[in-house]
């Protein structure tokens, strides 16, 4: 009996079904992780935030102060080296204070123009590296308070990525 040879020239139809399965799995995973509200807070570079069980989200965009191992950064501008903050005796970090006061004055001016109360406490979010000593954190926090930003919140990473 003659052996049947395979026809190599025959076109094999490209099956999209397996590709569709894969895409469906990816789509479901993406929808599960979707954050429809968007993020009002983004993590600064060069620091690791502490993990917390808190699930509280910021209600509005606020001024951000970042304290990493190298610098104290206000609104993406490097203001003073963290080492200098640690060395000083005073609670008030003068350079940070002057920048914050300037920002607070602008905010109050803007609030008046909009017909909103200008004497309300300012909101500020402080992002601090988890290894930063309490001394630096306390001085920055006190400076924020003296500059009129008395609603202070610390940015943290949600435990287990926010999963229950």
């Amino acid at each position: 009996m003659a052996r049947k040879t395979r026809k190599f020239s025959e076109d094999v139809p490209f099956s999209l079904t397996s590709m569709m399965d894969m895409m469906t799995i990816i789509l479901v995973f993406m929808i599960k992780n979707l954050d429809a509200e968007g993020q009002l807070l983004t993590q600064a570079e060069n620091l690791i935030l502490p993990v917390s069980t808190s699930k509280v989200q910021p209600k509005e965009v606020a001024l951000t102060v970042v304290v990493d191992n190298n610098y104290v950064v206000v609104d993406n501008a490097k203001i003073v080296p963290t080492e200098d903050v640690l060395k000083q005796e005073d609670l008030l970090v003068t350079k940070v204070d002057s920048v914050l006061k300037e920002r607070r004055a602008t905010e109050q001016e803007h609030a008046l123009k909009m017909g909103l109360p200008a004497d309300e406490a300012g909101n500020i979010i402080v992002q601090i590296d988890k290894n930063i000593p309490y001394d630096a954190m306390y001085k920055v926090m006190a400076t924020c308070g003296f500059s009129g930003y008395t609603h202070i919140a610390f940015a943290v990473m949600q435990k287990n990525g926010g999963e229950e």
């Binding site: 895409m23 954050d35 935030l49 202070i152 926010g162």
Partner: peptide, 26 residues
């Protein structure tokens, strides 16, 4: 459709979620 949806969702996905811890001023 999937090829359009996946990059769009990828840009909106949060893999590590941030939160805040509020304090009272000293």
């Amino acid at each position: 459709l999937f090829t359009i949806l996946i990059p769009m969702l990828l840009s909106m996905t949060a893999f590590s979620k941030l939160a805040i811890v509020e304090i009272n001023m000293p």
